[in-house]
Design a protein around this nucleic acid. Structure first.
Lengths: 340, 340
DNA sequence: CTGTTAGCGCCTTCAC
DNA sequence: GTGAAGGCGCTAACAG
């Protein structure tokens, strides 16, 4: 049942002409007679001829494919970035191969490996939380395959990067809380190995410092994931505190939502008794009651920009300086925090 | 800067041996002396040799790649299916190319086209809402490329399919509402061209019929999307009704959440005055207040099963009967609906 | 206007 | 043990 796809030589044989003539006819080469052209085209259609990209790629040393590696695709955050990339890259005639590293360094290396075996032209990667050296990235770059890092920084690795200013986002959020009268501000942090967690924590601390609010260690609650369950866990711990915080700045919306749930169930008023702010501004977040204040990130644009940089490398721009782009997040104030 | 990747002939030349010897050495062929083997392997590593999959695929007429086409990846629903597929397929040594049709028939055809040009070995597709004929699918199958349809049916097209019993899910939901005393049950439907919308509507209607509850046309509110905004819109319309419904069965969680928001803002009690049930059981849904009752679907398993069927086709199972698998959803009762 | 040749990187007979 | 030749499907010189 597995008929082999039609090839140029199939067409050539049936028409008693040479393969090159067929090739030229299909490419509308000027030096081919109309009659042969139409005969070829007709037969090609009948046979459902599809040019074999494998052969072409082999010949041209170019697959027109780029690989993107993200920790996971189920989150709104990464899937939106992918959308940005996808849109730009498709318009430029490239295909996208999406892979998930699942926060595993080994898996990341493995993916890089297999994708370079299939000769993708370039890479877009958001490193895992376990990625602390860049040998694998460097090997790729040295071999001439461009690679751009996005969202998560991989410090000590000099390459094109498109990041979001997590420090600034966190600072904005916490400053807002302070300005609206909060003083006992808790922070639920994400996995400590992640650059974004560190930067957001840093922003939180600096905002406190700016307003001379002493840092209270107990108010910094580490969790190791991003789902609402972790927010629930953190909030429950918080409920045991002798004195409740008057605000919570969570590492992301998932956590914030879990925390809000516990707080509201306990009969505590948001934002009167405690304000809550998240990060990511997921689509659902504005439909909670109260709607969640959150730090919005330019996800789609981050995808767009990363792709644009990669494509420009692909289009020849050899050894231009590594680009380092820092996108600005924006605080979206809703009713889970007090008014100014 | 673009060094060409090392090839077998690079190694052969530097070692003054033939290409075939190199190839055999790398494959640990028994008829190659240990000394050449180790020399070859060492040089290969030094040169960072990576077998060129393009050449291999061209030779073997097999890419070990499968293509999956979904309407979009930003939803939890589709991205979870993809995870199921990914896990199975990777273990079997296949790569996955993920593409989004964006509910466009044209785009779907286009993707099918380019992916078949790159010679993917098989397809997994969830058709767009615009897909009403299966010429493009059939052409592929006739040419010997296996394809399995999942989640959304494409009626009149006989092929392997893995679906969820949407009718049954809706029926369960509505029957539950009736058993808990609701009589004026509204249904917010999705895009009418989608099989899932029709099946869920059908389940809704049949449940009413079973309990002799007359169908009220006004209570069936059509919307053309799946995001909370559409739920808001529908609920606002509902608020204008002379008599409010005592329950809402929404086509999915997104819509349900938008509707809940409007209802609660209007000071109406959930579930005392109106019960709400969604569909999909998204991760966030249990953190709303009240937590949303929803119809859970075996998303991951759907991915797993679809992939399993495709792989079995790939492994030779020629013309076995088309498989038609109907997975069962399950009602997850939470506090947005009354107790039995 | 059309055909021939060579080669992209690799594997597999078939020789020696 | 190892080498040479052929071919996967296609294009780009180079001939006519």
């Amino acid at each position: 049942m597995k008929k082999n796809p039609a090839t140029l030589s199939d067409i050539a044989r049936k028409l008693n002409i040479s393969i090159s003539t067929v090739s030229r006819a299909l490419h509308d080469h000027p030096a081919i007679s109309q009659s042969t052209k139409s005969r070829v085209i007709k037969l090609a259609e009948k046979l459902n001829y599809q040019p074999n990209m494998l052969a072409l790629s082999l010949l041209n040393k170019k697959t027109n494919t780029i690989g993107i590696i993200v920790p996971e695709i189920t989150s709104y955050f990464f899937s939106s970035i992918i959308n940005g990339v996808q849109d730009l890259v498709n318009d430029a005639g490239y295909r996208l191969i999406i892979s998930q590293s699942e926060e595993s360094f080994e898996k990341e290396k493995e993916i890089l490996d297999t994708l370079s075996k299939v000769r993708v032209d370039g890479f877009l990667v958001s490193p895992t939380s376990e990625t602390h050296n860049a040998h694998h990235f460097n090997k790729l770059i040295e071999s001439g395959t461009p690679l751009v890092i996005f969202d998560r920084d991989c410090t000590g690795f000099n390459a094109d990067k498109v990041l979001v200013d997590d420090y600034d986002g966190a600072f904005q959020a916490v400053e807002y809380l302070i300005k609206t009268g909060c003083r006992r501000i808790a922070h639920i942090t994400g996995p400590s190995k992640l650059s974004i967690s560190r930067h957001r924590l840093h922003g939180y601390l600096d905002a406190l410092k700016k307003y001379d609010i002493p840092k209270v260690d107990d108010l910094i609650i580490p969790v190791e994931g991003f789902t609402p369950e972790f927010g629930v866990e953190a909030a429950k711990a918080m409920m045991e505190f002798p004195e409740l915080p008057d605000a919570i700045f969570a590492i992301n919306d998932g956590i914030a939502i879990g925390a809000m749930y516990v707080i509201k169930e306990a009969g505590i008023q948001i934002p009167n008794q405690v304000s809550v702010i998240g990060f990511d501004d997921e689509p659902h977040s504005s439909y909670f009651i109260p709607p969640l204040t959150s730090v919005w990130q330019p996800v789609y644009d981050m995808g767009l920009l990363s792709a644009r940089i990669l494509l420009s490398k692909l289009k020849g721009k050899k050894s231009s300086e590594a680009r380092y782009e820092m996108l600005k997040p924006e605080l979206i104030v809703r009713a889970s925090s007090r008014e100014l």
